[in-house]
């Protein structure tokens, strides 16, 4: 009798254990997840994902592995993710580069072959001048541009980038002409502004924040929707110029990705953005949390894509 009870208990336990294991198998996630970036190790996109992975520890119960697939200006990374299994174990850490490249070159895959999962951050863009510049606000710049059309040297990154797009938005919104000057990176541009080789620059706030604190450059305004948290920098919108352009950073998976995995990540991103240690970090580098769920993100990317295409057309880079 006793023996039988024991057998029943053991059997029950075994069944329970098996079904628990089976349940564990079914639940997403149950194996390491790969986060793909088109950046080289140490570059912006790479650091974003590695930090995200670090602070997601404890929220995502499986290891997160960052894989660098540089080359082809994001085309290789997009192709890799687009052709990955749809079970949600390969995700792409996206930036606007993902939209630009297919517009400028013929690529096999574009963001339309990906499933937006969630947006995480906006990197705020700002307009800045050297501290001894007479300009105090975007309005001064525009007045001067109206007086001397095409003479103001407006430093920005490569055409096709969001920085360069801002220069063009300023021209079309204020109906003035400036001379956009291309630089390969935000750092190079900052040196050119500090050295007086260009009159003003547009860039990420994080790149120039320390020069602002040191009093070497002055920020005129941001191109964000709301003021950058923790600063008193006015937005272009407040000044009457509705120019809002952001560098987004978010996650996408292959098209047709498992809805359960999407839901899991939407929750995980919201949780990690609330984690105090992560908040302390992302505030220190002036990244603005900008969570969007997969529906909002899809709409946002579609809109951004149209804006980018229209702008590339206006500067003659696409037909």
């Amino acid at each position: 009798m006793r023996w039988n009870v024991l057998r029943v208990v053991v059997t029950l336990l075994a069944v329970l254990g098996l079904s628990l294991a089976a349940l564990g198998q079914a639940r997403y996630p149950n194996k390491p997840i790969v986060l793909v970036t088109h950046s080289s190790p140490g570059a912006g996109g790479d650091i974003f994902l590695r930090n995200l992975a670090k602070y997601l520890e404890g929220i995502v119960p499986v290891p997160l592995v960052v894989e660098n697939r540089p080359g082809g200006a994001s085309a290789r990374a997009v192709a890799y993710v687009a052709t990955s299994p749809k079970d949600g174990y390969v995700l792409y850490g996206a930036t606007p580069t993902m939209l630009q490249t297919p517009l400028l070159t013929k690529t096999q895959y574009s963001y339309l072959d990906l499933q937006p999962v969630a947006n995480v951050f906006f990197d705020p863009m700002i307009l800045y001048v050297r501290a001894d510049s007479p300009w105090k606000s975007l309005r001064d710049v525009i007045d001067e541009a109206a007086r001397r059309p095409g003479q103001i040297r407006f430093g920005a990154a490569t055409p096709g980038s969001v920085e360069h797009m801002i220069a063009h938005h300023v021209m079309s919104v204020a109906k003035v002409k400036v001379q956009p000057v291309t630089f390969e990176g935000g750092g190079d541009l900052l040196v050119a502004v500090l050295g007086g080789h260009v009159d003003l620059g547009v860039g990420e706030y994080a790149e120039i924040a320390s020069q602002v604190q040191a009093g070497k450059v002055r920020v005129l305004n941001s191109f964000t929707d709301k003021r950058i948290p923790g600063t008193a920098i006015p937005t272009a919108k407040e000044l009457g110029y509705p120019i809002v352009v952001e560098k987004f950073r978010g996650l996408l998976g292959p098209k047709g990705m498992d809805p359960e995995a999407i839901a899991f990540w939407e929750k995980a991103i919201q949780q990690v953005l609330r984690k105090p240690a992560y908040q302390m970090y992302y505030r220190s580098v002036y990244q603005v949390p900008a969570y969007m769920d997969h529906v909002q993100y899809k709409l946002y990317l579609d809109r951004m894509n149209v804006t980018l295409r229209r702008y590339l057309k206006s500067i003659g880079l696409v037909e």
Partner: peptide, 16 residues
Amino acid sequence: FTGTPRFTFGSVDLVG
């Protein structure tokens, strides 16, 4: 400088 592909012969692999 302009973001235009040059001498890539239409290949994405040479865009970089």
